Amino acid sequence: MNFDLPPETETMCAAVTAFARRDLGGPKSYDPELFDHDDFRRRWRLAGRQGLVGATAPSAHGGCGLDALTATALMEALGAGCADTGFAFSIAAHLFASVMPIVEFGTGEQQQQWLSGLSSGELIAAHAITEPNAGSDILNLTTRAECSGDHWVLNGVKAFTTNAPVADLFVIQAATEPGGGYFGLTAFLVPAGTPGLLVGAPHDKVGLRGSPTADVHLTDCRIPLDWVLGGVGAGASVFAGSMKWERTCLFGVYLGAMRRVIDSTIEFVGERTQFGTPIGEFQSVGHRIVDMVATLQSARLQLMLAAWELSRGADGTVSSGLAKVAVSEAAVKIGLDAVQLRGALGVTAGDAETLLRDALPARIFSGTNEIQKNNIARALRVGRRARPRR
């Protein structure tokens, strides 16, 4: 077992952390009604020049062609340097939930049309699947796509779509055969500005506030037949493929954010004095710091194992699910610990309370942690009787 990243990967990650710290800035004052689209685009283009928004796309289409393990390390470096975790989250969601489905399921024409712009930072993508009454229950989507002559007609509402207010391209999941189960869904590529597609007002969220999120309304949205991604009935496969990447690589952002906050917490307890001594010398404080580091290391090992398996083409249902649960729960715990160690300063604006707020959604998106455990138990065949031996 070799836990060392290749020297070239270490160098790349150090450069990304330095770039993010220098050019991407900290959390923005995020009033959804005053969202600064121009500044978001400016930072997005900078990230594109660094190869971040197309990291795992093929080099033939302007990407870097990184495997899952290297991409996870890259996201960790981004999270360590970018204090605006919401912005880093938007990059990861764009890359793993939207770009990778086009890489894995798109036709040659679709890849030629979209991947270059999506990889360079010129374009932003969003994957719209969640609905007001269908989050984890994706096989019961109410958004419909009906074939009408030489067009598809889409109707429905998508909820909580990451990047929707800034997206140039949407990957939209709809039911083409209601009640058809796994093969009843189809994914479509729909450019922003298509008649019948309307993006709602940005949501005001408790965390990840630097990542713009909104609902998407589809009203008799007519699109050409060849805007299908992966073929009719392949929507669930497209979604499962995107989740395979997202549940693994995206959570590298949280590893970096946790490390950044642990480092600042160690610095804080070394400078903050009570009773004439730095509070870091108090045994209870020292023990809490050790627990924070142990929690991060444990979660990191699980995530890197999942990324290693994904890089080698393994199924990864168990490893990615375990890693998603471990990292999201670790981020909440470390956020709470960082707030507690700062006392009253922990509940004022700062990196500790920001991490805690940003960590809360991590237990929900990409499939709630409860759903992850259901999937893992199913993959382990828990509760299923073994077939009797003959």
Rank of each mutant, 00 (worst) to 15 (best):
P27L: 06
S59E: 11
A92V: 04
A93N: 13
A145G: 12
L46M: 13
S237R: 10
V16N: 01
S120E: 11
A18D: 05
K205I: 08
T348Y: 12
V293A: 07
D226I: 02
L355G: 01
A73I: 07
T142N: 13
V206I: 13
S211W: 02
T17Y: 00
V53Y: 01
F188M: 11
C82A: 14
A77K: 10
G65N: 06
N133R: 15
A80V: 04
P195I: 07
G184P: 09
T85W: 01
T219W: 01
V261C: 04
F275D: 14
A362N: 02
V318C: 05
S119A: 15
T107D: 03
Q297C: 08
D137M: 07
G63V: 08
G200F: 08
A83M: 09
V290L: 14
G346K: 03
I138T: 12
A18N: 05
C64S: 11
E109R: 12
T277M: 12
E309W: 02
F275L: 11
Y30V: 15
I129L: 15
R260E: 00
L141V: 10
G65L: 03
G79C: 08
G51R: 07
D23K: 08
G81R: 06
A240M: 14
E10D: 05
F282W: 13
L255G: 02
G79W: 09
L189D: 08
D67P: 04
D215A: 12
W245K: 14
C221S: 08
R260V: 05
V103M: 07
G230R: 11
L250I: 09
F40P: 01
L141I: 08
A330Q: 06
R389Y: 13
A240R: 14
D358S: 03
R21C: 01
V103S: 05
G252W: 03
G383S: 06
G383K: 06
K158A: 10
V232Y: 07
V347P: 00
R342P: 03
G196K: 05
A379W: 00
F183W: 06
E370C: 07
S298V: 08
I124G: 02
Q173I: 10
L197C: 10
N374A: 11
